[in-house]
Amino acid sequence: MAQPNSLTTPPPGADTQVVPGHVEHTEAHSGAFPPFETSGFLAQLVWLALAFGLLYYLMDKVALPRIRGILHDRAERLRTDLDKAQAMKTEADAAGVAYETSLRDAQNKARDIAQATRNELNAEAEAKRKALEGDLNAKLAASEATIRSRTEVAMGNVRAIAGETASAIVERLTGQVPDPASLNRALDATAAH
């Protein structure tokens, strides 16, 4: 079934009569190894030049500028979005700091007000306490003065009572009334103890 004579051009029709099923193969093998068959080179080069030229033109004029544009737009978009996000973050941070500051201010103010109120109340209480104390001290002094005067009066009365008692005792014992001068002397000596 091999066709060793296929390279030498057989008379047309000879193969067809011998092996009718191999017409196509006979024609196919009529030349050299197809990639080295030089008779088609010119046409292939021309078609290659046309096809590749068309491809180059399309890529150069339409496709690549468009893809470059798309990629550039996307990069630009990403950049602006990131910038925007960064700006927003800065803003949020600033707002956070402002909040912290105002919170601290408010706390300080509250503490000041509390302190002031406490001081005021303390001063008021102190004043009241002092007034009350003064009052009480005055009353105490008055009471002491009263006590002292009463004691003095009472002590005066004690001397009179002692004198009378002593003269009565002496009169009973001796039968005569002691003279008031010696009685007074005796009383003074006793009181001096």
Binding site: T38, S39, G40, F41, L42, A43, Q44, V46, W47, L48, A51, F52, L54, L55, L58, M59, V62, A63, L64, R66, I67
Partner: peptide
């Protein structure tokens, strides 16, 4: 000696240009 023809090779080359244009354009 050169045979001029529109071959299946040429057809495939233009088809390749078409596919490239489909993807990129």
């Amino acid at each position: 000696h050169q045979q001029l023809a529109f071959t299946q090779s040429a057809l495939y080359m233009f088809a390749a240009v078409g596919v490239a244009a489909l993807i990129t354009i």
